[in-house]
């Protein structure tokens, strides 16, 4: 028996619907069809009247969720692709994210964003939006990299009293499998040291964790011991765990699939440079996708985003500095 990342997301939603009558799911094709990615497969049947198809109206989908949350519900909304959340952007960043600050009324809305590149998906079905949402005060941004985290973090997202942008990576949907669902979990807000090492730290999250682990393994025969930190959530960032790791290794490489300008990798480097300057034995480095829209052709796509190979090369360079 094994369970995929995608099944874990479906199971977490089923569990949330079972546990809490306030939970409902709203989004395009999420009803009887089970969602464009099948993340809500069978849920409409299992929970009649609580898994609702919406019109193609991202703005109104999120607006409705905010209203329902004000009235005490715990909506989960699915943006069919993270890229389309730009159409609902206003309601996310100006309505959901400001409600608590302005009125003291919490806004427990979970916005699921199937995000990130997969081969052949092109400029409008591949985007990484975590940086954009993390920039806005009032939002929590989760980026699970494992089957276990996909499950436990989604349950926590629904339980949290604040709007959560839940970035689930489409590349991991079928690629990642676990033996079983976790019974306990590290709380959101804590990063995890996935692989210990003494020579350098790679800080990453979501699908890039697996590329980074592959890169770390490739460097082992050369005698390098690379530590890999999975941020798990990019807002908040667990700066303490990152800093402690850099204190041990003295070298930092940040890897993100998002575009290079600003963003999570830049934020990590800013924090380590300003708060942990003395811990560094070499200038901190980062690796992101190229500063162009995400290309369609697999040849171009493989060169556009960081891969294990590119991370290995960047790590080697940093280890020699």
């Amino acid at each position: 028996m094994s369970i995929t990342y995608l099944e874990a997301i479906r199971e977490a939603q089923a569990q949330a619907l079972r546990d809490d009558p306030r939970v409902f799911i709203y989004g395009q094709d999420v009803g009887p069809f089970g969602g464009a990615h099948k993340a809500t497969k069978n849920l409409a049947k299992e929970f009649p009247g609580r898994v609702l198809d919406s019109p193609i109206s991202e703005d109104a989908i999120v607006g409705l969720a905010v209203g329902a949350a004000i009235e005490g519900m715990r909506p989960i909304v699915e943006m069919q692709f993270a890229d389309f959340s730009t159409v609902g952007f206003n309601q996310i960043v100006n309505q959901a994210a400001t409600l608590f600050w302005r009125t003291n009324v919490p806004c427990p809305v979970t916005v699921r964003l199937p995000f990130g590149g997969t081969s052949g998906s092109g400029p409008f079905h591949s985007q990484c939006m975590e940086t954009v949402y993390a920039h806005y005060p009032g939002l929590i941004v989760m980026t699970p990299a494992t089957v276990e985290d996909a499950y436990s973090m989604l349950l926590e997202a629904v339980a949290i009293d604040d709007p959560v942008i839940f970035c689930e990576h489409k590349f991991l949907y079928y690629h990642l499998k676990a033996e079983k669902l976790p019974s306990e979990a590290l709380p959101v807000g804590k990063a995890r040291i996935v692989r210990e090492g003494r020579d350098m730290t790679i800080v990453t999250y979501s699908a890039m964790l697996h590329e980074a682990l592959e890169a770390a393994n490739e460097l082992t025969p050369e005698g390098w011991e690379v530590e890999v930190v999975d941020l798990r959530s990019v807002k908040p960032i667990d700066t303490d765990t990152v800093m402690a790791s850099v204190a041990r290794t003295g070298r930092l490489l940040c890897v993100g699939e998002a575009w290079p300008w600003g963003g999570v990798t830049a934020e990590i480097i800013a924090r380590v440079s300003s708060e942990g300057y003395g811990l560094l034995d070499a200038p901190p480095q980062r690796l992101n996708a190229k500063d162009t829209p995400v290309p369609y052709h697999p040849n171009l796509w493989a060169a556009h985003r960081p891969t294990a190979r590119a991370i290995t090369a960047a790590a080697r360079k940093l280890l020699r500095l």
Binding site: L64, V66, G67, A69, E71, N90, Q91, N94, R102, T103
Partner: peptide, 27 residues
């Protein structure tokens, strides 16, 4: 406004409050 009393505080983006009312009514 006072959202818990059904009195919603508008944001500046016009039309944005309508779907929030919908959400309360659906809830």
């Amino acid at each position: 406004g006072k959202p818990k009393e059904g009195y919603l505080p508008m944001i500046s983006h016009l039309g944005a409050m309508i779907s929030v009312v919908n959400g309360i009514l659906l809830a």
